[in-house]
Design a protein around this nucleic acid. Structure first.
Lengths: 211, 211
DNA sequence: CGGCGACTTGAAACGAATCAAGAGGGGTGG
DNA sequence: CCACCCCTCTTGATTCGTTTCAAGTCGCCG
């Protein structure tokens, strides 16, 4: 995206604040713009017919929410909820569409971004269908470390409830809890309240990738 | 995509033929163009660390293979294998890239297409993680009917091996076989050799969507 | 006709979900 | 300031679905 375009889009921005737990948009909602995350983390999830919701993606600083729906002009297929206090800027639909049609570079940029998301989604599909819950939990911790980092004490910077972890991994929260305590016993992780710290990244990684 | 663009791209096409079982491209292969399916069906799959491969998508007439990798200029993350005799045209990378940069409409068109794939991928993620194998098999049959139709005798036009069904659903082939015989016993489907016909679409659908 | 691959079935082992009950912790109201 | 309540976390026991291994059958192609 060129600088001028960036500026032009920038001008149409409105900053919005969301508190922890607040909904940014819901499934099947008509979106008239996208949200660009400035701060905080949002979970993107989809309700399954069985009543559980599956977290499809975690979006943090720099991520754009709702672009898929705006581009295809469909209602949203996911809901977005703030995991901590968030700051996001809103870019109205027509600003997106205009820039898209006027500027091939912008379109290609968005395309690249979406292509990346698509690859990640493919990977998730394979993980979900071929790996055990234990492997997926291990992987989730590695993912959290790589994408959101650790605090000064080595605990994962993004603290998820057991329930949220379960919804990322696609399992029951009790299963997550059991696996966490097993990992603790093996010295792979340690916990403090609901915070989790990775102690032995290598072993955790081996576990996640095991044949 | 405008007619002129279509024509320009068309000129660079080369038609290739693939026989049943033949590989179009493999995972981690560098692609110097995309394949546009004219006839036949291809499975797009990814090898999991445990040695099984997961079919992520079935691509038939009109589908484009490899566009994601070409656009992001990465090696392929999936492999493509012909499920029956196929005819596909090859469009070299630079033809794509040039058109992409020159023509916003084309870029937006591709974007729409990829956005659609992304939504489907999200749905697959939810299905994989929240539904039982039985539900997923039921859904797979419905999908096959809706996307590839039935022959004159009511059998699914695309016949997959039990193994391929298992790889779509993400399970063991024995499980698929057991579920198929259960469906037969209940009168939901009938079989003839490895061909499958849906007898009671409604019940099958209910089963797939059950809470 | 013989052999090979795909399909089918059975039994046992395993992983994960579910149900049930209790422990901890943080916030609220008395 | 304390007691209480609610919500989340934790653990145990049981049930269920699915995988795995093993053996056997079917059908197709050479």
């Amino acid at each position: 995206m060129s600088k001028e375009e960036l500026k032009k889009v920038s001008d149409t921005k409105t900053t919005k604040l969301f508190k922890k737990g607040e909904t940014i948009f819901e499934e099947n909602e008509k979106l008239n713009g996208v949200f660009c995350v400035r701060n905080g983390v949002s979970k993107l999830s989809k309700l399954s017919p069985n009543g559980k919701d599956q977290i499809v993606k975690l979006a943090s600083k720099g991520a754009v929410l709702g672009q898929r729906s705006v581009i295809v002009e469909e209602i949203s297929n996911l809901s977005a909820v703030a995991l901590n206090d968030m700051e996001a800027c809103f870019i109205p639909k027509n600003a997106i569409v205009n820039t898209l049609n006027a500027n091939p570079n912008f379109a290609v940029e968005v395309l690249r971004h979406m292509a990346h998301d698509l690859k990640e989604a493919d990977d998730v599909i394979v993980n979900m269908s071929q790996k055990t819950v234990k492997q997926r939990v291990a992987e989730a911790f590695i993912y959290l470390k790589n994408n959101f980092g650790e605090d000064k004490n080595g605990y994962l910077a993004l603290t998820l409830s057991r329930e949220d972890i379960a919804n990322v991994v696609g399992t029951a929260s009790e299963s997550v809890i059991r696996i966490i305590s097993e990992f603790k016993k093996k010295g792979l992780i340690k916990t403090f309240g609901k915070k989790v710290a990775i102690v032995d990244p290598q072993s955790l990684n081996n576990l996640a990738e095991a044949i």
